Measured scan of single mutants.
Amino acid sequence: MASQGTKRSYEQMETDGERQNATEIRASVGKMIGGIGRFYIQMCTELKLSDYEGRLIQNSLTIERMVLSAFDERRNKYLEEHPSAGKDPKKTGGPIYRRVNGKWMRELILYDKEEIRRIWRQANNGDDATAGLTHMMIWHSNLNDATYQRTRALVRTGMDPRMCSLMQGSTLPRRSGAAGAAVKGVGTMVMELVRMIKRGINDRNFWRGENGRKTRIAYERMCNILKGKFQTAAQKAMMDQVRESRNPGNAEFEDLTFLARSALILRGSVAHKSCLPACVYGPAVASGYDFEREGYSLVGIDPFRLLQNSQVYSLIRPNENPAHKSQLVWMACHSAAFEDLRVLSFIKGTKVLPRGKLSTRGVQIASNENMETMESSTLELRSRYWAIRTRSGGNTNQQRASAGQISIQPTFSVQRNLPFDRTTIMAAFNGNTEGRTSDMRTEIIRMMESARPEDVSFQGRGVFELSDEKAASPIVPSFDMSNEGSYFFGDNAEEYDN
């Protein structure tokens, strides 16, 4: 783990906690998980779902989305002020799938948001429990990260689609708070800032007046979040320049895209947490497990152990491969979309394939898809080993990566060399080191050039047997250095459309 220093740990961010010791953190995270579980059980009762239907990941996603929508204050306010045809701002819903006479049927349900809020609060001892809501947002974000390569979004903001390893959390809503900021990748933060800068260039009043003052505060806050992700002084200094700019424009845009590229080699610290679907927490609570009393951590053995003992089902389209669908969801559960496939294969105990080789589309089923041909199958979400999630980018030494994705962002704290394609990355730096950030740029390029592919990161860190909950005997895996390590390699994943 990167030293926490003055930073709060993510469990504290996750639970809005002030400084807590490890036991208190485990208890408050457990409380959050228990609340999600209780809410899910109650919703299944309301909807009269069978046990099997309640364990269907598509039903879980609909129920999670309903509660997130019920608590989305800004959108609710907007919907009330701008009524649109056929949208009731006070209601929320989605597809629920039921097994009827041996076939899967889709039923569109509609609930009062007020009623959903009441059920959620009741499951969370009367609190709004925003930490639990954020947790579900991060699960949705991790699922998107594993399912889609955001080529269009990258290109629109002047970045290269091969930089997708920097895009963790790119679909997280803005209201996801400190826990959300911690899991956002460098590219995601750059993209958010670039969008602001572009608006400022096109709209003279963007930075002016009372609204402009708020915009400015948001801009500086985002700059500080991004600065905190960088691990070298030169990158941090460049972020200070971007933040202090009187009138952010093209120079800042250039600096930010430069920094994003540099992060492929001088990786930023991005938190990883295993956020599971509500249909995993519900049955665990129903079986009598007391998360608050037992304590829970999002970055240790607990999620692995929970998945070892969970039964989750998914709808499967006619030509999809259930094992591939399982891999997709497994990666999402562990926030591992940008991790090295060699490491993932070792931990999972079966070969993890790149996205383009998977015969599976996303987990969600569109409303126009034919239910007649839908089957369902068990998702295999178990693992051979477990490993500690990392909050750091690993040290800054790398190795060759593949054509589709030119770097990785480690999820697990496991000893290995970190793949990246130096030639491709360095070719993108057209040696432009003039301007006010020239000395920093020169320094950053120097550090990137001296990074050695064969150097090892996370020295001495290994994986653990599932029986080793105290992480007492690390097993340090050895990897084939020459092997392909990137998930979005030469990829044809669908595009994420909101």
Rank of each mutant, 00 (worst) to 15 (best):
T92V: 08
S467Y: 04
R152D: 03
R441F: 04
A366Q: 06
A471P: 07
R99D: 07
I201A: 03
T350W: 07
Y296C: 13
E107C: 11
A179D: 03
M481V: 15
G282D: 00
N321I: 15
N205Y: 10
I225D: 08
N211W: 03
I475S: 07
E469M: 08
P173H: 11
Q399T: 15
A129E: 07
A337F: 02
L328K: 05
T433E: 12
N492E: 09
L418I: 14
P419H: 14
K7V: 00
P95M: 15
R162G: 09
F412L: 12
I225W: 06
K351E: 08
T373E: 04
D160E: 12
N125K: 07
K113M: 09
L379A: 01
K7T: 05
Y111S: 08
T350D: 00
T360E: 01
A146L: 01
G54E: 14
M105Q: 11
N224Y: 13
R243W: 06
A70P: 09
D340I: 02
E294T: 05
G200H: 04
F429L: 13
K214N: 09
A387G: 15
D51F: 00
S377I: 13
P322I: 01
E192V: 10
F464Y: 10
P283N: 08
M239T: 15
R384T: 09
L193T: 07
F230I: 11
L79M: 10
M167I: 10
F39Y: 11
N21I: 12
G435T: 10
L259S: 04
M13H: 00
Q308F: 12
N319Y: 06
M331I: 15
D88K: 01
N492D: 11
C44S: 15
Q20D: 02
M1F: 13
G462Q: 02
T350P: 11
R65I: 10
F420L: 08
S262R: 03
I406P: 00
K7R: 07
A337M: 10
H334G: 01
V285T: 10
E434M: 10
Q311D: 06
P410Y: 04
Q327I: 08
Q12W: 01
G187I: 01
L47D: 04
A337S: 13
P248N: 02
M447A: 06
F291N: 07
G200F: 07
L143A: 09
K48P: 13
E494V: 11
I116C: 15
C333S: 12
W330D: 01
L133G: 00
R121H: 07
R246Q: 09
R446N: 12
G460C: 05
R199G: 13
F338P: 01
S457T: 14
I425H: 06
L353F: 06
R400Y: 04
V183Y: 02
K103V: 04
Q409R: 07
R243N: 08
P419K: 00
G94N: 08
E80S: 15
K214T: 08
R204V: 02
W330H: 02
E192W: 13
P318E: 05
R38G: 14
D497T: 00
E73G: 09
A286W: 06
I109L: 13
I201K: 00
E220P: 06
N142F: 03
R216V: 02
V242N: 05
R342K: 15
F338M: 15
G158Y: 07
E11C: 02
N368K: 10
R121F: 05
F206L: 11
E443R: 00
W104S: 09
G212D: 03
P283Q: 15
K91L: 01
V312T: 15
R293F: 08
I444D: 02
I109V: 14
I445Y: 04
Q42N: 05
I475Q: 10
Q231W: 08
T390P: 08
S383I: 10
Q122E: 05
Y281M: 07
G268D: 02
V414E: 08
K357Q: 11
K325A: 02
A451V: 13
E80W: 00
F488T: 02
D480W: 10
I33R: 00
S326W: 11
Y148E: 05
P173F: 04
A179M: 06
D480K: 05
N397G: 12
A427Q: 07
S486C: 12
R208Y: 11
G5V: 06
E254S: 03
E192N: 07
L256D: 04
A2T: 08
S457L: 12
N224E: 11
I445K: 08
G288D: 06
I408K: 05
I201R: 00
G356N: 01
F420C: 15
T232N: 14
Y148S: 03
A218E: 08
N101C: 15
A251D: 11
S3C: 07
K229Q: 14
S438C: 12
M331L: 15
F206P: 03
A27I: 15
N101Y: 14
F346W: 12
N142E: 02
A323Y: 09
A251N: 06
S84H: 07
G295W: 06
T188V: 12
G249K: 07
N124Q: 13
S84P: 00
I116Q: 01
V329A: 07
K470Q: 09
R208W: 13
M222P: 01
F412V: 11
S376K: 06
P354N: 07
S9Q: 14
V343Q: 08
P410C: 03
R221N: 08
L56D: 04
E494W: 10
R221P: 04
I408D: 00
Y111D: 13
E375H: 09
S28R: 10
S482A: 04
I406H: 02
R317I: 11
Q12M: 11
E375A: 09
D340E: 12
A278Q: 05
A332K: 06
I347L: 13
D145Y: 11
L341Q: 13
G362V: 09
S297H: 05
R156C: 11
R461D: 02
E24M: 09
F291T: 06
Y52P: 00
M32Y: 07
S467Q: 13
F71P: 01
R99N: 03
L379C: 04
K77S: 02
M196Q: 09
A218G: 08
A233Y: 03
A336S: 07
C333R: 04
S170V: 07
W104H: 09
S314N: 09
G288R: 09
I444Q: 06
A471N: 04
E495V: 07
C44R: 10
R384G: 09
G460R: 15
A428N: 03
G228I: 00
H135M: 11
G394K: 04
G54I: 01
T232P: 04
S60A: 03
G249I: 08
R317G: 08
F412P: 00
R118D: 00
T215K: 13
S376D: 02
F230W: 07
I96P: 01
S50P: 01
E11K: 12
R216P: 02
D255M: 08
S413I: 05
L379E: 00
D160T: 02
L166D: 02
V414C: 12
N250H: 01
F230M: 08
M331W: 04
I201D: 00
M371A: 01
E495R: 10
F489W: 08
M238L: 14
R221D: 09
T396N: 10
R216S: 11
Y10G: 02
R106K: 11
E80F: 06
N224G: 00
H82P: 03
R98Q: 15
P318V: 07
S326C: 13
R382T: 09
A146K: 05
L110F: 12
D302Q: 14
K31Q: 04
K325P: 01
G288C: 04
A85M: 03
T157H: 03
I225K: 09
Y40D: 06
I475F: 14
G86M: 02
V242K: 06
V299W: 07
N498E: 09
C275M: 02
V456T: 08
Y40Q: 10
T378G: 00
M137D: 05
T147F: 04
H140Y: 14
N125F: 09
T442E: 02
A131P: 13
L61M: 08
T433A: 07
C223A: 12
Y97G: 00
K229W: 05
V285D: 07
R121G: 06
S170E: 08
G460A: 08
S377A: 10
F346H: 09
F412S: 13
Q122K: 14
A278D: 12
M481D: 06
C164M: 06
D439W: 09
T423K: 04
T396C: 06
Q409Y: 00
Q399S: 14
Y78S: 05
G490E: 12
D127Y: 15
A472R: 02
Q311I: 11
E495I: 04
V456F: 11
L226A: 03
A387K: 02
T15R: 00
S457E: 08
M374E: 04
